[in-house]
């Protein structure tokens, strides 16, 4: 029999091995800890049946619901959802611009200023959108308006962060060129900063719009307008074919919006 030559063993430093073992043990312990206290036995007995009903609903959707012309059908609700996301994103895009200049690190201002701006934005980002929506519902009543405002405020957290990163990545050369030819600070903004960051801003806004569409579908769960409200209603009344058509509607809408917005973004950058 022919003897097989083996490759030499890889040398491993002991420190690395020990470190890997420690990390592995730690992760393993955390996972074990996570399994404690989660009651995996609490699953409803008819879970399988309901899943089957939902899939059945997806295959036999309630097609009458698509268009009835009374403003309470699928198409009107989806259009309202898109309108909410559109308005929410527009509002937050406008408010985000000053926030972005606040949070952007630049050589013209103190580090402390941009640091506070970044903290404020992080806080806005983590403030739950649903809570915001409920607060606005208290102020203006249930409906799409509360949803628009919630999205408008919540999106600032992410949009202004992306905007500020775009500003930080600016090339300083054009600023200097405008100053060298005698431009004022306003001129620098108009002829150097904005033309450079605008494509990036638009692209970021479109990306946020894609996310807001998804958010807009969920805000209806708390009564802030959009397609979520009829979905919750259909789920609680076990109208599975209605659930099916709404889910199909959401999937088609999100896919279409992603596609359109994605192709515009590709052309921009």
């Amino acid at each position: 029999m022919q003897s097989v030559k083996r490759l030499p063993k890889q040398e491993k430093s002991t420190i690395k091995t020990v470190r890997n073992i420690v990390i592995f043990a730690l992760v393993f312990a955390i996972i074990i800890w996570s399994f404690t206290g989660i009651p995996f036995t609490g699953i409803k007995e008819q879970a399988g049946k309901i899943t089957a009903s939902i899939f059945n609903g997806l295959i036999h959707p309630d097609l009458d619901y698509v268009w009835r012309g009374d403003g309470e059908d699928l198409i009107s609700n989806l259009v309202a959802t898109i309108a909410m996301a559109f308005l929410g994103t527009s509002i937050s895009a406008i408010i985000s611009v000053p926030f972005a200049f606040w949070a952007a690190r630049s050589k013209y201002k103190h580090r402390f200023t941009s640091a506070t701006g970044k903290i404020v934005l992080t806080f806005i980002r983590t403030f739950p959108e649903i809570v915001l929506a409920l607060m606005f519902i208290k102020a203006v009543g249930p409906g799409a308006f509360a949803g628009v405002m919630a999205m408008g405020v919540h999106s600032i957290g992410m949009l202004a962060k992306l905007f500020s990163e775009a500003i930080e990545n600016l090339d300083g050369g054009t600023d200097e060129a405008v100053i060298a030819s005698g431009g004022s600070k306003l001129n620098v903004m108009m002829f150097s900063t904005f033309p450079q960051v605008l494509p990036e801003f638009v692209s970021n806004t479109l990306y946020r719009f894609e996310l807001s569409i998804r958010a807009a579908t969920t805000l209806g769960l708390v009564g802030a307008g959009g397609i979520g409200t009829p979905l919750v209603f259909a789920l609680s009344t076990r109208a599975w074919s209605r659930v099916g058509i709404i889910l199909i509607g959401i999937i088609v809408m999100v896919t279409l919006v992603d596609f359109v917005s994605g192709s515009i973004r590709k052309r921009l950058v």
Partner: peptide, 10 residues
């Protein structure tokens, strides 16, 4: 395409 919270509701 299905958002987190909708998955939750389902």
């Amino acid at each position: 395409t299905i958002p987190n919270l909708l998955l939750g509701a389902i």
